[in-house]
Each structure stands twice: as C-alpha cells, then as structure tokens.
Nucleic acid binder design. Structure first.
Lengths: 253, 253
DNA sequence: CGTTGACTTGACGGAAGTCAAAAGGTGTGG
DNA sequence: CCACACCTTTTGACTTCCGTCAAGTCAACG
C-alpha cells in the first residue's frame, strides 16, 4: 500500500527496515474517510488520536467572529494533522477536508510511544514539525511582503514541490480542487481579485487551471513570479542524499 | 538567578525538583551578549548550539531579494531561538537582536540528550514548539484578515500576555524598543501607515507609547480592537492549574 | 429547462502605499 | 554647552492595489 508519510519523511532520512515497517503499520491500522467540506477536526475539540492524510486535500483554517475564514495551510497526503495532541489541550483551529479525504487514525498513545525513543523516526517527526513551522513562516512573508500575483504564484509553486516529493506531480500537473473562493481564503484576498490575478497568470502562459487540475506550464517563470526560495522546505540536496526518492524535486529547487 | 525559560515552561506543567534544576543548569552554563541590530543567527548558518533568550528582545526575520524585510516573530525572554538545529541542516531565516540581548548558549548535544527521555521536560519542549507554531498561524490570520489597526493592536496585546507570563509586565507596561519602521516590518505595513495607526490608537486612549515603553491603558478595549482570542497561546486555565505562576494572565484571557 | 454554484467582468470606493518635506530627539565632538 | 549630523516621528498630497457591489456567463444536474 502507498504510504505518503513514509515518502515524505524519507526526505529527512532513510529508515532502517524495522522503522520503515513501523511507519507502514502506523498508517495501515485504521482509516477514516471525510467528505468534502467536512471537518476532520474542529476548533476546541479535544483530540485523542492523530490523523494523517493519506489521500485528498485538507486545510487548516480559522474563523473570525465576522465569519471571515482564513486558511493557514494545506495538508496533502503524508501530512500529519495534529501531532500536537499529546501536549495541547485542544485544537486551536479547525481542519477541513477540501475534497474527499482519507486519513489514517492513530491513537495518541502510539505516537507518544514513538516519541519516547530518540530513534531516527522520532527525529523525522521533529523534522516534520519544524519544517511545518517553516512553511508557516513563509506564509507570513507571503502576506506581508508579496502582492496578489506573487502570493498565488508562490502557493502554486510550493504545492508543486510538495506534490513532487510524494510523487504525485506527473507532468507538472497537480490536483487542485479548490474554488477561487477557497483560494481567496488561503491567500487573504477576495474571490474577485483572485479571479483577476489568475487570469493574468494564465495570460502570461505560466499556468493552466481547469477541471480541478493545475498544470504548471513554465516552472521557472512561475518560480520567478513567486520570488520563490526553496530553503524553507529543508529538502535534502540532491548532492547529499543522492537517493532516488530525494531526487524528485531537483529540477525545481 | 532569574530563569524565564522555566517560568514559561511552567505554563505547561509543574516540574519535579530534578527537572527544575536541570532547566536552571541549562541556562546557567554559558551566555552570550548581542548588541542591538546584531544577528544572533543568520540565514544559511549551520548551527551547533541552541540559543535561549534570557533578556532583551529579538526577532525572526527574512529578507526578500528587493531588500524588504519581514519580521515573522518576536522572541522575548524564555523563548528558544533554534530548537530545530538537531534536525535541520541550516537556518532558513535570521534572528536579530532588537536591543541588547543576552542568550544562554547550549550545545545541541545537550538538547538532544534532553529530548531522548520522554520526561515532563521533553513534553514541555514539544509544547513550546507547538505553541510557537500556533503563534505563527495567528500571525497569518493577522495579515490575511485583520486591517492595520487590528493587526497592531493584536501584536501589542499578545506581547502583553507573553510578558505577563514571564512576569515582566508590571502595571500593564512592557518593554517596547522597536522603531516604527521595525513595527512596520513585523506587521507587513509601511512605516507611514504604522505611524498613522499608532496615532489613532493613542487618540482612542488604548495605549501610550513613548520612551521605548508600551503602556496599555485599556486592556479590554485593546483586546476588542484586536479581535483577540487567546486560545492559540494554549495557556493553562486558572481553573485547572490553580498555581500562582499560571495565574498571572487570568485577567487578560 | 430551470436552478444552482463557480467563474468572469465592469464600475466605483477605500485602505494602505509612495513621495516628500518638516519637526522633533539624541548623541558626539569641538 | 552649543552645533551638527543623524535618526525617528509626523504630516500632507497623491497614487495604486485591492475590496465592494452588482450583473452577467457558463456548465452541471435533477
């Protein structure tokens, strides 16, 4: 069975036979399917299990009092929704499925057990957490210092890289099931302005976006338009890792 | 000796005698003083030690190609600059001292050792990491869905709470050594607009800001102006913890 | 074929940016 | 102790990017 979590964590380090098997068991125990727009976790919820996205697309979001939604991050296969459960009382934000999304469900105790040993796997989980933070920081840059065009281009390019890592970006095409309204919620723009900006990106022949698929026509052009610097993703450089898995992104970064 | 790290982590849990002592040793080993504007860590640096702020004020920032600076987070006493060193190759952003700042310097190996045991202390470090991420997410909300006035009010209020936690906010006054330009870098605004917004907050009798000290005149008013919801800070509620230390913020949250 | 949701486009308004200049502090050295 | 340089803050006039409101197109679907 496909294990995107393993593919992702192998960006950090290769695993021993035993640890690899452990990772595979982790996602094979129990799964749960969420319908589009369904909450995987809601703000305020006290969680006792962690959720790992296996397929589909989910988003971390928060609602302000006036009903404005801000999406803070997207979760693609291999991403962990709520590693924090064993130290935080309750969710401080919600996670919603954007398409039909399948999650592996793992008891918090199991994870806690994993973290007890300072194995390579534990380190990989720290790595995952730390790079997640780095991605959040980059989103702050997006909002603070990039205009609408750069911001959307940056999101697209980042997703391209992340889908490549889990080997789901054949032909520079990635799944992109978001409506323009949802894209607006994630970029902090309005749907109308998103629409205009997308038009521009299309006219510049950087992307094609239709039928819930995003095709990047000109990766280098998109990269420039986004002012993209991949260092925050902390990918092993091809030079060092030199393993097939780590090499999937080398033309992008 | 004052140990702000301990004060901060005690928000998560009380420590046993032994662990408390360990924490105190941690910050007492070796310290380093940084001058204003000096980098504590630079982007791209390969770090071998972790830095913990003991006094002063520092900021995580990133520079874009055109020289725009975006400050992503402020580090006050008790905050750890670079817990990630043992899993990430190099810094993906810089940390700069805003005032004279004293840091405890701890070998990465020591930290790695700490994390090996799943002690209360290890959990507290996870907690710290996870709440740091939560603060980053809140900053994304700031930029995406709050206007200039709300954004600045939110930063002020958050700082007030955080200084309270480490017991450095007597009289609702906190150290605030930032210039308006630096404030602009952190809110994603321009210095001119920051100035106009500050003027407004002053006229509304919410704050006083002079001589590098910020005094909050009307905490509840500022809180409303910020549309502040404290859940992302994951403070133990007074009801549960009921310990003096955890109680310092109860009128604010 | 009417309803619904997503996308598109235009006209207008407003929050924040830009440019520029003046006023107010602060530290240094003659 | 004044003078000068330098930085920070303040203010005004103008511009621009993005938001708002509204109407219209298009495709999917029962």
């Amino acid at each position: 069975m496909r294990n995107p979590l393993r593919l992702k964590l192998e960006q950090y380090a290769g695993f021993e036979e035993r640890e690899g098997r452990r990772l595979d068991e982790l996602v094979a125990q129990r799964t749960q399917v969420f319908a589009p727009k369904q909450d995987i976790l809601t703000e305020g919820e006290k969680v006792k299990e962690i959720h790992i996205v296996l397929s589909g697309l989910a988003a971390r979001y928060k609602l302000l009092d006036e009903g404005e939604r801000q999406i803070m991050a997207f979760l693609i296969p291999g991403d962990i929704c709520d590693l924090e459960v064993f130290v935080l009382e309750e969710m401080d934000h919600g996670i919603s499925a954007m398409t039909e999304t399948v999650c592996a469900v793992v008891p918090a105790e199991t994870i806690k057990g994993l973290l007890t040993e300072m194995s390579c796997l534990t380190q990989a989980l720290w790595w995952s957490t730390m790079t997640d933070s780095a991605v959040l920081r980059e989103r702050i840059i997006d909002h603070g210092r990039r205009d609408a065009r750069e911001r959307i281009a940056h999101l697209f390019y980042e997703l391209l890289v992340r889908y490549r890592i889990i080997d789901e970006a054949k032909d520079n095409s990635i799944p992109f099931p978001l409506t323009q309204e949802e894209l607006a919620d994630s970029t902090g723009l309005t749907p109308v302005h998103v629409n205009r900006t997308l038009k521009q990106l299309r006219e510049d022949r950087l992307i094609e976006l239709k039928g819930r698929v995003l095709k990047v026509l000109d990766p280098q052009g998109l990269r420039r338009a986004a002012r993209f610097n991949p260092n925050y993703l902390h990918l092993r450089k091809a030079e060092e890792g030199l393993r097939g898995e780590a090499d999937r992104v080398k033309d992008l970064v």
